[in-house]
Structure formats: C-alpha cells, structure tokens
Nucleic acid binder design. Structure first.
Length: 577
RNA sequence: GCGCUCGUAGCUCAACUGGAUAGAGUGUCUGACUACGGAUCAGAAGGUUGGGGGUUCGAAUCCUCUCGGGCGCGCCA
C-alpha cells in the first residue's frame, strides 16, 4: 500500500480523461507531498503541464481537475494554488488505514515490486588484493551493500559481486614485496623497499607462512622460479584479510570474479572480436596529452577502442607496448561477461578517481548489449580523514593508512555504516576520527537508535500496566489520535514505502538515513509534549483504548525505524547504555 | 591544454531529480527535567545557492561563459 502511488495513478487517469495521452507529457506529471506542510498532503502539477496542450489557462484546467478529485471519498479538500498547483488534503482515515497496514505487514512494510523479475548486479569494493582494507574503502563498501539491501527489498534479484584485480604488474609487485620479507626473515637483515613495492608489515605473516612450508628453498632462486607461487599465496592470504574486514562490516559478496581467470579463458579475445565486428576497434596512434609533461612518449601504433563514439574525448588503448592487454581490455571482457549473465541492470560502485574511466566502459556495455542493459556507475567521493581538525594524508609509501579494522574495532560497524550514509555518494565526506570515537552523542545514529529504544521501553512499561503486545494488532482505534504531531507521525509512516521506492530508483541509500532522522525527530517531539501535557503521553492508565491506539502508532514507527536501520546494515538497539 | 566532478547558513551537509517562502545538524544566545529513558524538546539568529547571461508558467537543479576546489588523461589497476 502506497497512498502516493495510488493517488498518482488516479491523477493520471484524470489526465487521460481530459485528453492527455502523450506518454512524454504524462511522464512529466508529478504527485508528491509538498515541502510546505500547510499546503496539504499531495500536490500535483497536472494543470500546469496540461494547460498548453489543452489550450486552457492552468487555473481553469485546475478547476475541472478539482471537480474530479473531490468525487474521491479520501479527499477532504482540493485547492488551486500559486501558478496552478493543485493541493489535496486527505481525510485522516487515510493515515489510519496506512498505519493499520503497517502494523499488519510488520517488517515487510515498505516492500515493493519495482524489481519484479529483474536481475541486478552490483559490483562494489573490488579493492586491489595488495593489502587489507583501509578506511577509504569503507564508503563504497557500505554504499554498495546498503543499495543491494534496498534493491532486494524492492523485489530485485540482487547479485553482490567483487572483481579481484589479480593480474598485472601490481600483483607482481605484491609477490616481490613478500619475497623481500621472506629474505628479511631468513637473513635477519632489513632490506630496502623500492618505490613500487608494498612496505606494509601485513606481508610478514605471509612470508612466515611460506617459510614454514618451503623453508629457504627460494632464497637463492631467480624471480621466474618463485613469482607465481608467491603471487598465488599472497593474493589468497590478502583476500582472506579483505573478506574478514568486510565481514566485520556485515558485508558478504555472492561472487568473487578473478581478472586472471578472465584472461586465461580468452574472454578478452572474444570481446575484442565482437567489438571489431561492430567496427569499434582499429589500429591507431595516440597523441600525448597536452599541457602535461610526459617523459619518453613515443607515438606508436596500438589497438584502440572507439570510445569517442560514446562521448569519450579520445579513443582508448587495449594493448600495452609489450603487446599485453591493458587493464581496460580485461575490464571490457569482464563487463562483456556480466552482460552475458542476463542482468537487466549493472551497477558499479567506484571511487571518484575512476571517473575518467566511465565513458569507455559504458561504451563497451552499450556496444555488446545493444543498449539493452541499464548501466549505472556510482562514483563515491573520497573520504577525507580528519584528526584534530586537520586532514590526514594517507600514503602507501609512508604506510600511514588508517585500517578499516582499527575504526570498526573502536566505533563498531553500526556507527561507521550510518555515518558513511549521511552524505550522498558524489559529495565528499569528512570523517572525523575524534568526533566519531570520543563523543558518541555527536553521532546521528544514536538519535535514531534512541527513538527505537524508547519505543521498546514503552512496551515494557505497558506490559507492567497490563497491556500486552498482542493488543497492538487488535484493530486499534486510530481516530482517537487527533494531535497534529500524532497525525504527522502517521503521515511519515505512510511515506515510508515511497522513500524506499525513491532510494531504489535513484540508487541513493542516503535517503534512508535522512528519513530515519525525520521520523525519529517527530517521535521525540511527541514524546516531549507528554512532559507538559499528560493527556498526550503514550500510556494513559485510565484509558486503555487510547493507550492501545497510541502504542500501536509507536509500534508502526518502531517497525519503520527497525527495517530502515536494517536496510542500511545497522542493528536496531533495544536498550541504549 | 582537454575531460569528468563538486561549489548551498560560521562549519558539515539536505533539498523528493525542473516546483511554491531553499531545509537539517553542529556552533552561538535563550528556555523546558520530583519524566512513559534529558543521548530529548522549544525559541532566536544565521542566505544574492561562487559570479554573469540564457531556456520557461517556474532554476540550487538544464544550457552557456567565468572563477575556485577535487579527480583523471598509453605501457598502475
């Protein structure tokens, strides 16, 4: 039950009746709660959209529409306002019905069928297997996982996927770094880690493991002898680190796809052939970028993808100078492979530093899927770590990464997850270590949790007064609740399905945290009213019917908060310490 | 040099994707607790949405120019 959708379809019917049939026009009609509460419950721009086509003034057209709307039993008032908006006020019983429905559905309240029979793939995290996760990875991880939850709730069949970049120079350097540690331990001497190597101490246990198994077998051997073995062992070990980090955040991927396996299964050749057949690949030369100093740029022929056909500024190379594939080539193969798995939507969660990469991959997806697959890339801005009011620079060289584990260990996964969703993905986010670890009341998550815990404590109190849980669903008489704040609370409960839909459609999980803060705020307000006005308290021992109605309302609020928190991966608390 | 992206209250950010008088938190000031949990609530103050131009009934949102920050621009991934 989504009252906003119900009314919107009625409004579209009226539009049809008036002679508006064009799909393009109909799509421009909106029905939404106005920002200003006093305007009413739902506002539509139908008269503004239709006036030109029907050759009427917006106000005249609005009068006709209002006549139709007033025929509906649930509409108490319909007024034209401003340039031609129509504002609808609904009967209170509408909200009563919504709340009864919510009570009945419990934790299923808010589900919808947007994604019925649709498969969606969300690729997120995909941190390189060269070290444990640091705090900067957390945002994409939380964002992707929460979005996956929301899409599940909206009826999609969701696959959570992790792409392991286990091929190329980067993982060679990983193996070389482990080898250094291996020699260090065997010779008991400190070695120098050159620029491209990983100096982190987390590689020492891996080296020890190798020594335990092979002793000094590789200490005097040349690189080709040991590198593949070192690589395999190191990657496996580090992926275990990463999986542990993810699991501490409550995240579990369904599928881990290996770049290396794509290369060995010839997927790259396949996608290159397909693109070649579509005339999107050619041998050509690339100019060096202007205004940027590049040493040793030599113009040479290479295999290029015509990404400029898809809005990219230049065509992009598929091969390196030594003839091996670029990262783009294997990523093209990866996306080709995803397209073959019959998803209707592919979502990629990337760091903002990959922004320049979007167009070429979109080009590949469009080309191989004949534009049949929705493709959305969400770029998460980097997280600025702030300590004592100053930004902390993290660098691989200095090894001063703040590990995800250390933050989760101090603040817990719930606080971290909530904070990461208090910004929309494309805005940068300041993560103040001090604020988050030391003064917990600065965290908005506690504000919401507090509302949840208060409602839980109402249950306990009520059962002392002889009102058991079972009474909540026993057809509460919501018409006893007439205070503005009570009605507002019901309206917020009624809005919940709409919030989910919007979050799912726009791929914006942060809407959930904002909504939860709103509904918690209204709840706290009503609670405090009870301080000065005893008749507005939730529990009125002399009036059982009223108490049940009010507690039932509180229970719908709790239901919404509880499922909202769970959607973003936060555990609702029954008690705040 | 080119491309992408962001710019909103002192600070950190929202704004239902083109809607009406741009909203929260925090900070500052002033108030409300013998309470169903004060980790709460109320009030005050704070704005030319970086700037100019354009599109239309209507712009923080779209187009254009401009200023400023971030990211990226073959042989890292």
């Amino acid at each position: 039950m989504n009252i906003y959708n119900d009314l919107h379809s009625i409004i579209i019917q009226i539009a049809n009746k008036l002679g508006l049939k064009d799909r393009y026009i109909l799509d421009k009609i909106t029905s939404e709660p106005p920002k200003e509460k006093s305007y009413g419950d739902i506002s539509t721009n139908l008269a503004l959209i239709g006036s030109k086509i029907l050759n009427k003034t917006p106000h005249n057209l609005a009068d006709e529409i209002i006549k139709e709307l007033l025929k509906l039993k649930i509409v108490s008032k319909a007024l034209v306002a401003g340039p031609g908006f129509i504002n609808l006020h609904l009967e209170d019983k509408v909200w009563h019905e919504c709340c009864k429905y919510a009570l009945d559905k419990k934790s299923d309240y808010g589900k919808n069928e947007l994604g019925k029979n649709k498969k969606v793939n969300i690729e997120f995290v995909s941190a390189n297997p060269t070290g444990p996760m640091h705090i900067g990875h957390a945002r994409g991880a939380v964002y992707g996982d929460s979005l996956a939850n929301i899409l599940c709730f909206s009826g999609y069949e969701v696959t959570r996927e992790y792409y392991i970049n286990d091929s190329g120079e980067q993982v060679n350097n990983l193996a070389r770094s482990v080898y250094k540690r291996y020699l260090e331990i065997l010779t008991n001497k400190k070695l120098d880690f050159e620029n491209d190597l990983y100096p982190g101490e987390y590689l020492i246990p891996i080296a020890k493991k190798i020594i335990k198994k092979y002793d000094n077998k590789f200490s005097d051997k040349s690189e080709p002898v040991w590198i593949d073995r070192f690589k395999r062992i190191s990657i496996n070990h580090i992926m275990d680190y990463i999986k542990k980090d993810l699991s501490n955040l409550g995240i579990k991927h369904d599928i881990f796809i290996s770049e290396k396996s794509l290369i060995s299964s010839n997927s790259i050749d396949k996608v290159v052939n397909i693109l070649r057949n579509k005339n999107l690949i050619y041998e050509g030369e690339l100019e060096p970028p202007k205004g940027k100093k590049i040493n040793n740029w030599e113009i040479r022929k290479q295999l290029l993808f015509k990404s400029s056909h898809f809005g990219d500024d230049v065509d992009r190379p598929l091969t390196k100078s030594d003839g091996s594939w670029t990262y783009f080539a294997s990523d093209a193969a990866y996306h080709y492979e995803k397209c073959n798995r019959k998803f209707s939507t592919l979502i990629n969660i990337w760091g903002a530093d990959h922004g320049g990469y979007v167009k070429r991959i979109r080009g590949v997806v469009q080309a191989v899927s004949e534009s049949q697959i929705d493709f959305d890339v969400k770029l998460c801005q980097l997280v600025n770590i702030v300590k004592d009011g100053k930004p902390v620079k993290m660098s691989k060289r200095e090894g001063n990464f703040i590990s995800l584990k250390s933050v989760v260990d101090t603040v817990g996964p719930d606080v971290l997850r909530f904070i990461m969703l208090t910004r929309k993905n494309d805005a940068s986010l300041d993560f103040d270590i001090k604020k988050v670890t030391e003064s917990s009341n600065e965290n908005p998550v506690y504000y919401v949790q507090y509302a949840h815990a208060r409602i839980k404590s109402l249950h306990k109190k009520a059962s002392i007064e002889g009102i058991k849980d079972i009474d909540f669903v026993n057809d509460p008489n919501f018409s006893l609740l007439k205070n503005t704040s009570e009605i507002n609370l019901m309206k917020l409960v009624a809005t919940w399905p709409r919030v989910i839909e919007l979050a799912a459609k726009s791929h914006e999980p942060h809407r959930i945290t904002y909504f939860l803060t709103d509904i918690a705020s209204e709840f706290h307000y009503l609670w405090t009213l009870g301080n000065s006005r005893e008749e507005l308290r939730y529990i009125i021992p002399k009036d059982k019917e009223l108490t049940i109605a009010r507690l039932s309302l509180a229970e719908t609020v709790r239901t919404v908060i509880s499922s909202g928190l769970q959607l973003i991966g936060v555990k609702p608390l029954e008690v705040l310490k």
